[in-house]
Amino acid sequence: MERSKEFLSKKLISFFNSINIQIFILFGLILSTLISFDYYYKNSNLTIPFVITTLVSSIITLLGIPKLKKIKIKQIIREEGPKNHFLKKGTPTMGGIFFVPIGVIISNLIYFNKEDYKVILTLSFVIISFLLIGFIDDFLSLKKQLNTGLKFNQKINLQTFISLIFIIICASNNLLPNSIQIANEIFYIGNIIYPLGIFVLLAESNSTNLTDGLDGLLSGCSVLIFTGLAITILIENPNNNLTLAPLCIVMAGACMGFLFLNNYPAKIFMGDSGSLAIGAALGGIALLSDNLWSLLIMGGILAAESISVIIQVSIFKISKRLKGKGHKLFLMTPLHHHFELKGNNEIVIVGSFWLVTLLLVIINLIFFINT
């Protein structure tokens, strides 16, 4: 039994070690899916924006790496993290400043001068604003030479402030739905959409921030979730050119281009500037397109990462208060660190999380089509 487990483990490590092959398989899978949908839905036109954004994002990120090295923008590793992460020390970070603006710029070019262009401008505002919050956090972290930049309450306050402005802009332009769809049921929620919208942006951006802890983990999952959102929106509005599907697929392309350089061993990290912006983009798009339920399903890995931290902190505080000694459910959180400390190979963890995300995207699409 032990030998069979060891054999299976070696096989998994061998398979996932071919991570570059996996990335090209991922790229090929998404490309073939988009070509199929473009053929079936004549008005979709998703393939070309995805390919162009992937190419531009990859090139800009590649050119940016030497610049970051020159000005010594390098990752700070937290002392309490897994010890093997100290090998990553010195890797250029803040890569979000390269690939996120690419997605925003290309999406604005696609929608420019078209009806409801204000939707894209509003989403661009929240994405870039969260990028700037992440940039400040990354900058302060480098300045202090610590893994923490902004204090927790400072970061949350800034995120809440930007989210509030976003919701006010959306409300004043009638961009927010007054109902949410869960499965095949539609629930009218009225003004509850305002606090819900703020919560979604905070929850999603912090979930993506927590998920960004292993090479290629968040960027790979984000490619799949953005693509899943694009297809979901396209199925909802097959005859409408002015959906948010192109924005989703452009963001997927931006993450895909970055992933080619962020895969293990990463040549660059996205930093908070990338992870917070990705979360804001996912949350904002899902909110305005009324696809919060789909995002919850497809972003199951993001939710699990965030929930693992909440559970760990809660159990530790409660047990310390009751028994005088804090206890932990996980070896370390977020969840990917627990699997690391269990002895799993980083590449295997990342590949497995991608696979789970792919399955969740497929489940959502099957569920969505059948309702």
Score class of each variant (00 low, 15 high):
Gln312Arg: 08
Leu282Ser: 06
Ile278Asn: 02
Lys323Val: 02
Ser275Tyr: 06
Met270Gln: 13
Gly284Phe: 09
Ala266Gln: 04
Ala266Leu: 06
Leu335Ser: 00
Asp272Ile: 00
Gly343Pro: 03
Ile268Val: 15
Glu346Asn: 11
Val348Asn: 05
Leu292His: 01
Gly279Lys: 09
Gly299Tyr: 02
Leu292Thr: 02
Leu292Asp: 03
His337Trp: 10
Asn262Val: 04
Arg321Ser: 07
Gly351Ile: 04
Val309Lys: 00
Gly300Ala: 06
Glu346Phe: 10
Phe339Met: 12
His336Pro: 08
Val348Gln: 06
Leu282Pro: 06
Lys267Arg: 13
Ser306Pro: 07
Ile347Arg: 14
Met298Glu: 05
Leu261Met: 05
Phe353Pro: 04
Gly283Trp: 13
Asn345Thr: 07
Met270Val: 02
Gly271Ala: 12
Tyr264Asn: 13
His336Cys: 09
Ser294Ala: 15
Leu322Trp: 13
Lys328Trp: 12
Leu341His: 12
Ile318Ser: 09
Ala277Ser: 13
Ser352Lys: 07
Asn263Lys: 15
Gly279Val: 05
Ile297Asn: 05
Trp354Thr: 15
Val313Asp: 00
Phe330Pro: 02
Gly271Asp: 11
Ile285Gly: 10
Gly324Pro: 06
Ala266Cys: 06
Phe330Ile: 03
Ile307Asp: 00
Arg321Trp: 11
Gly283Lys: 13
Ser352Pro: 03
Leu329Asp: 05
Tyr264Leu: 09
Asn263His: 14
Leu329Pro: 08
Met298Arg: 07
Gly283Arg: 13
Asn345Tyr: 12
